[in-house]
Amino acid sequence: MKKVLVTGGSGFIGSHVVDKLAAAGVEPRIFDMVQSPFHPEGTVDTYIGELGDLEALTAAMQGCDAVLHLAAVADVGQVALDPVFAEQVNSKGTLNVLQAARDAGVGRVVYASTIWVYDGFSADQVDEDSPLGLPKHLYTATKIAGEMYCTSYAELYGVEYTILRFGIPYGTRARPAAVVPQFVKKALAGEPLTIAGKGDQTRRFVYVEDLAEGCVAGLQPQAANRVFNLVGTEETTILEIAEVVRDLLGDVDIVHVPGRPGDFKGAVVDHRRAEQELGWTATTSFRDGVVKYLDWHRETHAGERTAEPVADPSGD
Rank of each mutant, 00 (worst) to 15 (best):
H301E: 09
C215Q: 11
V290N: 04
A223Y: 04
E191D: 15
V206Y: 07
A177W: 13
G171S: 08
V180T: 10
S285T: 15
L188M: 09
E235Q: 15
A212G: 13
V245H: 03
A274N: 12
E299N: 13
I238L: 14
G289W: 00
I195D: 07
G232K: 03
L188D: 03
F286S: 05
L219P: 00
G262H: 11
R287K: 07
G279V: 09
L164E: 10
R272E: 14
T284Y: 00
H301T: 07
Q222D: 10
L211Y: 03
V244W: 03
T237V: 02
A224D: 05
W280Y: 15
L193W: 00
W280L: 11
V269K: 10
T281E: 13
Q276M: 13
V231Y: 04
R273E: 12
H301V: 07
A242C: 07
G171E: 05
A302G: 14
V268I: 05
A196M: 09
A307D: 05
T236Q: 11
D295P: 02
T237H: 00
T194I: 13
R246F: 00
V269H: 12
T233M: 13
L248T: 06
G266A: 09
P181H: 08
D251C: 09
G199W: 00
E243Y: 03
R226N: 12
H297M: 07
N229W: 01
D251M: 08
A223E: 06
V255Y: 02
A274T: 04
V227G: 07
A189C: 09
A174K: 06
T172W: 06
I238S: 06
A178P: 03
A267W: 05
E235H: 15
G199E: 05
L239V: 04
F166W: 03
V227M: 08
H301G: 14
R226D: 12
C215G: 10
A196G: 06
D270R: 06
K186P: 02
G171I: 10
I241A: 15
I163A: 12
V269P: 06
A223K: 05
P169G: 10
L219I: 09
R226G: 09
L219A: 08
D288Q: 13
R287T: 11
V179M: 15
L230M: 12
D270Q: 08
Q182P: 02
E243L: 09
D270F: 01
W296Y: 02
P192W: 06
F228D: 10
E299T: 13
R272S: 15
G171L: 11
A212R: 01
P258C: 12
N225R: 09
W296F: 02
E209Y: 02
P181W: 03
V227N: 08
N225A: 13
